[in-house]
Amino acid sequence: VTLFVASYDYEARTEDDLSFHKGEKFQILNSSEGDWWEARSLTTGETGYIPSNYVAPV
């Protein structure tokens, strides 16, 4: 399981994006799509795309 933590807050801009807060942890589901990764929030359980430059490895 690949875990990352949010370095910043992010507000979703499309329905496919995932909003999150600094400190929130994610399981990365797919990182092969470039700068936007499909992730599941371990806080909310929601799945969506997050900007990879807003998160760091745990």
Rank of each mutant, 00 (worst) to 15 (best):
K22N: 04
V58F: 10
V55I: 10
Y10W: 09
T44A: 02
W37N: 00
Y10D: 01
I28Q: 01
T2A: 10
W37Y: 08
L29I: 11
W36H: 07
A39M: 04
A39F: 02
E24L: 01
S19H: 08
V58P: 05
A39I: 03
D35T: 10
L18D: 00
D9H: 05
W36C: 08
A6H: 00
E15N: 12
E33K: 13
A39S: 02
A56C: 14
Y10A: 01
K25D: 02
E11P: 04
D17S: 14
S52P: 08
V1D: 14
S19E: 03
V1R: 11
T14I: 07
T47W: 08
H21K: 15
S41V: 05
E24R: 00
H21V: 14
R13D: 08
R13Q: 14
E15S: 13
S7D: 09
F4I: 05
T14P: 02
A6S: 06
R13F: 08
T44Q: 02
E33T: 12
I50N: 01
S32I: 10
E15L: 11
S7K: 15
N53Q: 11
Y49W: 15
T14R: 14
V58T: 07
F20W: 01
E11M: 10
E46D: 09
D16N: 15
E24M: 05
I50H: 00
V55F: 09
A56Q: 14
K22E: 07
E15V: 12
T44M: 01
T2K: 11
Y8S: 09
G48V: 03
N53L: 09
E46V: 09
L3W: 11
V55R: 01
G45D: 05
F20V: 05
E38N: 07
I28H: 00
S41C: 06
S7Q: 15
A56W: 10
E38C: 15
S52Q: 07
D35F: 13
D9M: 04
E15I: 11
F20R: 00
D35R: 07
N53P: 06
N53S: 14
D16H: 15
Y8G: 07
S31C: 15
E38V: 15
D16F: 15
S31T: 12
G23V: 00
F4R: 04
F26V: 03
E46A: 12
G48A: 02
L29M: 08
S52V: 08
D9G: 05
R40P: 00
T2S: 10
A12N: 05
